[in-house]
Amino acid sequence: MKKTALLAVILTGALLILSMENFPSWGDVQSPASLHLSRHFIEKSYEQTLTPNLVTAVLGDYRGFDTMLETVVVFTAALACFLVIRLPRDVCTPGLFYYRHTRTGLVVRKHDACELPGENPTFERVDSDWPPHDVVVVSTCRMVIPFIQLFGLYVVAHGHYSPGGGFQGGVIFAASYVLLAVSHDLRTLVHRLNERVTHLLSAAGVLLFFGVGLFGMAMGLNFLDYGALEGVLGMSLASGHSLGILLVEIGVGMTVTAALVIIFKLLSSRGTVTEGL
């Protein structure tokens, strides 16, 4: 098997290398790839969309449909994970519950769930896997998480001017939640962002994108034509496009955050969404 694989791979590789014979050489300014479409994008996109980050301009506007589908792909992935590994609710109830005494670290096992007393409980519910409590990690992460989230939002909002955009910001935002789950436990994350919220959020994000597109149609233009935003708040055509890109990026960010959180929750808990990594 390995030898066949190696042979196949080497053959394919050799063929691919041979077929590169006529490529323009590395970094050639006059290659067709950098002349035809890209020249137009570089030279025209700022005046058409008022977005200095060319990648964002092309991504959000010229190829907005691609981006919408890309968002749909993420949305799909979340749904797919949900469909494939989410266990039925009645299966997810654990048989045993673990409670840690917060002053001493002793762990108590009970066969049924306890009501925890209000504000400052002596006991807290913990995973069956790892009862010890790591003060350092927990409080460092508490300190860091808001900044990560803020950074995520910043990345979404400033996709026009610097690298970034809805997708990257969304991922960073989701990463902050992953950090929350990792440093505390999955239950904390689920408590904060339960399944219903994440699903609704992921659908809402795509809908926001979709809504911007439909707005274009409603105004008599084509689907996803942000030119329809011209005149809203007295904007020019180009800044309408810019606003459209921003709205779209926010939608992307929402979906990506929610979808990645869904996927992480499901994967790390094997579909039970109770305990995880």
Binding site: I42, V55, V58, E70
Partner: peptide
């Protein structure tokens, strides 16, 4: 050229 970057952003997401 920004276009390949755009395409690859999408591809990474995919």
């Amino acid at each position: 050229n920004p276009l390949p970057h755009v395409l690859m952003l999408t591809a990474i997401v995919v």
